[in-house]
């Protein structure tokens, strides 16, 4: 029986083909899909997040790792669905009304998927009511709001207010991020948390939802 060191290393190095091959190998050896995901793929991506935080990895390395992780998940997906394995949680991500910048939002989505979350991408320029509607429809546990511009930061408050006024605020946690965002602003508008970049967003999501890191 192999341990998952090689699989994790291949995720970190962004070796897509090898990741898919190793995942198949672990399954052939009798490991469950959930075990391969929880102990091989996701820990590999967590190390990528750490390396990103420490300035060793940059966006290209992060995206390559995410692609390799996806290659592994593709192999696992039918088995995970057949055994009714649920994602860590569902996150609804979007750039708020008035703002069409999506680079930051997309990076956060990549890292959250790498952390075992299911991510529903609401897109950009998303009106407050649309966030609430999509959260209800999809049963989202966590909402991620992104804004690059100071001029669109008020849309974050409007979105949180929409969850409140429509009686759905208690059903979700809300985290915010983007270049001009600060913890102080998150506190001021009643968000549950602020993450300064994609890697920290995964840690924050786990913390907010009480998921083991």
């Amino acid at each position: 029986m192999q341990n998952y060191d090689e699989l994790r290393e291949c995720v970190i190095a962004g070796k897509k083909a090898q990741v898919a091959e190793l995942v198949r190998k672990h399954l052939d050896e009798g490991k469950t899909a959930k075990d391969v995901m929880d102990n091989g793929l996701i820990p590999g991506m967590a190390i990528v997040g750490k390396k990103f935080q420490e300035g060793e990895f940059f966006i290209p390395e992060m995206l390559m790792a995410a692609r390799s992780l996806n290659a592994g998940l593709e192999v696992l997906r039918p088995l995970l669905e057949a055994s009714d394995v649920k994602p860590v949680a569902k996150v609804l991500m979007g750039t708020v009304k008035g703002d069409i910048h999506d680079i930051g939002k997309n990076l956060v989505a990549v890292m959250l998927r790498g952390g075992g979350f299911e991510v529903i991408d609401a897109g950009v320029d998303v009106p407050p009511d649309k966030f609430v509607e999509l959260a209800r429809e999809n049963g989202a546990d966590l909402i991620g709001l992104s804004a690059l511009l100071t001029t669109t930061m008020p849309s974050m408050k409007d979105t949180i207010d929409a969850f409140q006024s429509q009686g759905y605020r208690e059903n979700v946690k809300i985290m915010i991020g983007g270049a001009p965002i600060t913890q102080e602003y998150a506190d001021e508008i009643g968000a549950d948390g602020f993450a300064r970049n994609a890697s920290y967003a995964v840690e924050l999501a786990k913390k907010l939802l009480g998921v083991a890191a």
Partner: peptide, 9 residues
């Protein structure tokens, strides 16, 4: 640059 890092090495 991005807000607190360079996108590439």
């Amino acid at each position: 640059g991005n807000q607190d890092f360079l996108p590439i090495h």
